[in-house]
């Protein structure tokens, strides 16, 4: 039977939703599921992890050098734990993408990146070429599996669990050559882009940072998260952490509303798992209409106020 370790993602206070998605992937593999929560003074996160349904144990490791997820400090710690597991899993977020390959190299294996489906405990499905091809990849029998989980492909496991929380001592010390300095977060009151059930996104057609206010207003009316195309980010209308697409965030909300986004392949890659995609664009030939469930050819500057008025 598989013994699975998930490396939790959190900000010191709150468990990131991606961890609950990793649990769903772990359940598809089947076996005993533990979660490692590295950090410092982060007991609240441990309690949240213990509440996820299907988790056996939560391993809390607290140390000053683990306060921030510096891969150089976290990877040796995860390596120590990995000895007792067949699978070590992290989310395919920037945190997991940074950490897990470092763990894999220390283990001495190649990593399965962006796992979207489990075929067997040794075989997994993942996208390549920006999602233009899907491959099945298999590890040799007896090889330890290190993987990142493509969060948009998995539902979040619910709560109701009651895992045992164990305090563990950090085995390693600070790498010494890497130091965390700061995080500049746009700090929005809006729902997190990756967890939001509805997302409103804008493209270059908004024309300016001021024009983007239209998108924010509609999003607030819908209780939606706000995203943007790479073109809108590059034009400086919004910060880069709002970028949706292959090189930004890959999301899968229930409802995705794209305004003035043409639908470059790299953007499509980031949204195509959304349950319903709505596209509003002046250009009837825009590629976004090829994947939209509901398309409306029109000028967003008139359509958005009309929608707002209809929502009351």
């Amino acid at each position: 039977m598989s013994k699975i370790l998930i490396v939790a993602e959190h900000d010191g206070h709150t468990l990131n939703l991606s961890t609950a998605k990793c649990v769903s992937c772990a359940k598809a593999i089947g076996g005993d599921i533990d979660i490692a929560v590295l950090g410092q003074g982060h007991d609240a996160v441990g309690a949240q992890a213990a509440a996820l349904a299907g988790v056996s144990r939560v391993l809390m490791i607290s140390a000053a050098h683990l306060a921030h997820p510096l891969a150089a400090n976290w990877a040796p710690e995860v390596l120590q734990l990995a000895a007792n597991y067949t699978h070590v899993i992290g989310p395919s977020t920037t945190m997991g993408k940074d950490l897990m390959p470092r763990v894999a190299a220390l283990v001495g294996v190649n990593q399965f990146s962006d796992v979207m489906e489990v075929l067997s405990p040794l075989s997994f499905r993942r996208p390549i070429y920006a999602g233009n091809a899907i491959i099945d990849v298999k590890a040799a029998e007896g090889q330890k599996i290190v993987m990142t989980v493509r969060t948009a492909s998995w539902p979040a496991t619910g709560s109701g669990g009651n895992a045992v929380v164990e305090q563990r001592t950090a085995q390693g010390t600070a790498a010494g050559h890497s130091r965390y300095l700061a995080l500049n977060s746009a700090g929005s009151e809006r729902p997190d882009l990756q967890g939001a059930s509805k997302v409103v996104s804008g493209g270059r057609a908004l024309g300016s940072a001021e024009g983007f206010a239209l998108i924010y207003r509609l999003a607030d009316k819908l209780g939606a998260g706000v995203g943007a195309s790479r073109a809108a980010v590059d034009a400086g209308y919004v910060p880069s952490d709002m970028q949706v697409g292959q090189t930004g965030k890959i999301i899968a909300p229930d409802l995705y509303l794209a305004f003035g986004i043409s639908g470059a392949i790299q953007h499509i890659t980031g949204i195509k798992d959304s349950r319903t995609i709505v596209a509003v664009n002046k250009d009837a030939e825009a590629p976004i209409f090829e994947i939209a469930d509901i398309g409306l050819v029109g000028d967003l500057f008139t359509v958005i106020p009309e929608i707002e008025a209809l929502l009351g």
Binding site: D11, L70, T93, T94, M95, S178, R179, Y180, L181, A182, L183, N184, S185, A186, G187, Q194, P239, S240, D241, K249
Partner: peptide, 8 residues
Amino acid sequence: VDAGLETI
């Protein structure tokens, strides 16, 4: 990073 811009 997903949460914004991190400096190390």
